[in-house]
Design a protein around this nucleic acid. Sequence first.
DNA 1: GAGTTTGAAACT
DNA 2: CAGTTTCAAACTC
Length: 745
Amino acid sequence: MKMISVVNGENDEESEKGIVVMDTPERTQIANPLSKFEDSPVFNYINSLSPIKPVKSMHFTQTFSSLSFASLPSVFTSPHVSSLKDSKFLRRHQFLDPLKPELTSEDAKKAETIEGNLNTDQNSSKQQTDFNPSDSNNETSAVPLNGCSNFESSKLSYDPVSVNTMNTLKMVGPSASSAPFINNVSADGSLRTEGEIEGIDALHHGKEATGCDWDSLISDASELLNFNSPSEMVPYKGSGQNTLDCTDYKVDGTDNNPSEKNDGMNGAPENHQTVDSTLNNFEVGEPVEDADEGGPNVFRGMRRRCLVFEMSGSRRKHFEDSSNGSSLNTSESNQTVLPNDNNLPPLSAGNDSSRCILPGIGLHLNAIASNLVDQKVKHESSGSTRQLIIGHPSGIYGSMALATLDAPSLENDMGPSQNSLLVAEDASKALNFVISEELSQSQTSPKKKRRRSDADGEACKRCNCKKSKCLKLYCECFAAGVYCVEPCSCHDCFNKPIHEDTVLATRKQIESRNPLAFAPKVIKTVDPMQEDELNNTPASARHKRGCNCKKSGCLKKYCECYQGGVGCSINCRCEGCKNTFGRKDGSEMDLEVNPADESEVIGSDGSLQMVLHSEAEGISATPISATPASPSRFGRQSIALVKSSKGKPPRSFLAIKGSSSSQRFGTLNPFKGVENQQLQTVGENEIPEILEGNNGSPISGVKSCSPNSKRVSPPHSGGMGQRSSRKLILQSIPSFPCLTPNSKQ
DNA sequence: GAGTTTGAAACT
DNA sequence: CAGTTTCAAACTC
């Protein structure tokens, strides 16, 4: 318990620097030196229990920084958020670099020991869970999101971990040291598992108590659990394991590093879980699925980034929660948070920091698209992919995707989830396209696979800049609001934490020129009116500026619209547009998949697994992480939410809309529903508004995905405009909530 | 892996 | 605002 709080506190401190975080006196106090924690017997104990190793943490840190930035940054990139972004950027970088070294050296030993213990320590992990039963409850909020087959186990490990990790990344300074986080995470995971295991209800209560948005989530989660448990078990490979051992999850979850370890550990269910958890960070909700589905290994790299995103998402949630106060629940907090988040996001949004994604919008979009693909796979499995799409805007994507993944189980349980369908139809179409494309691409060329995987991570972006010094929008990393990382092949790169000042200054310059330079490029434009006028394109999302393609026919990634998985619009000046997502003409794409079809394909767990595997094999998990964004981390939480919504088919969107908790869902719904329309109507202009007004991150504005448009919740449309934006935010938020609870504790 | 194509970003 | 250049991703071989 203490450990967790401490870790959170550290994170918070850092976050505070960059952003307003939940400030609890405890946290600040705790936050102080990591060394203290490390020294503490508790810390040691945790370390021993958790497989997490310092090294891993380092990776995470890197990924986080990059990821978090990527996912969130993109969102943040929006002018409004910029300030925040900057801070985040810097922070992340700082974290990363410092963390890595520290963790690696110090923690490496621990990690080894831990690893050795992990297998055996599952028991210990269980013990940990025992330790913090109460905490688990608090954290559980996150868990519900996961909606693991065993809701409990999967959720616990992932959400907690992701959230914590996210927090740590965000908040934690370099010293914060991944290890502490990991430890915390592990502890959280354990706790969660216990809590979940013990009773979802308890968890719900705990969540509520924590002040998380979880109320709705929990309720949903409970439902989800019911649904998920059966479905998830099947769908996810590891699920069996996952479902079985909460402790395992915990262990994994606790260990950020586990993912890496998992690689070696793959055989053991625990390993999978760990990997998933780590990965989950990105995907948040999804991770479990991903890990289960795809090989955990595949996602490693992605995961890191995804983690970042998730972190961002988690942070958001935390912020929201903290800001809102424990009492507020998801709805209000989310809304308020969203704006805040948006502000915060600057870090990321674009930055996929969180999961990738979502990351500067331009990049974010790309990342999102990539993420979407991954998500699509997941979605397909679950059939809830649609929701994921919705979330995409930035880091959100990841979360969304995760949600969708989870949702599937629910849907399965529920039946072809109406909700998911409604929410995701449009998104699903887009995703389907993206996925299909990505899959094909991944299959076609290794490079593509790599990139996509990277991109998927999306958050995990890699650039190859040679002349821009990674300080121009040419650089995907920079554009996404993420620092360049090792995988980058850039020359004379200034987009590194070391050059924060330069990076920030450059960003400011660019933003001064174009305030929306870092905002998501893809926005939900959907005014019914506009759509009709524009093209009747099914997609609710449109590229902010439109493309100018002349030779690619808008059928290649050269086209930003296509890359973003959106149809061309009136704004486009393209020639010979053949954009499958929606032509300038208004003709729709062939690619669009029928929701029903998707559900079918995805519907079966096996199908889903297959998809995941393919991705994992070919691309690795990156796609999963993507989410983006986004981004990701978020994803899981969001996913959990989604699941919950799905879980209760009846509630589905309606509930979401109405209730605070539902708000998150509502965010999703908005796309489909009237709310979406409003948002869409806003178009580019809206984005700014959102950002400004809500502080909304571009992400929210991005809505991106929804292309198709069957709107489930049109009825709500009325006042949804804002809500929709909020809803979006909420989606992203979900991931945070988990963190918050934990952190708060 | 090298080279080409493409279109956004940046510049004038 | 339009035209041109620069740039790096996407793509092809």
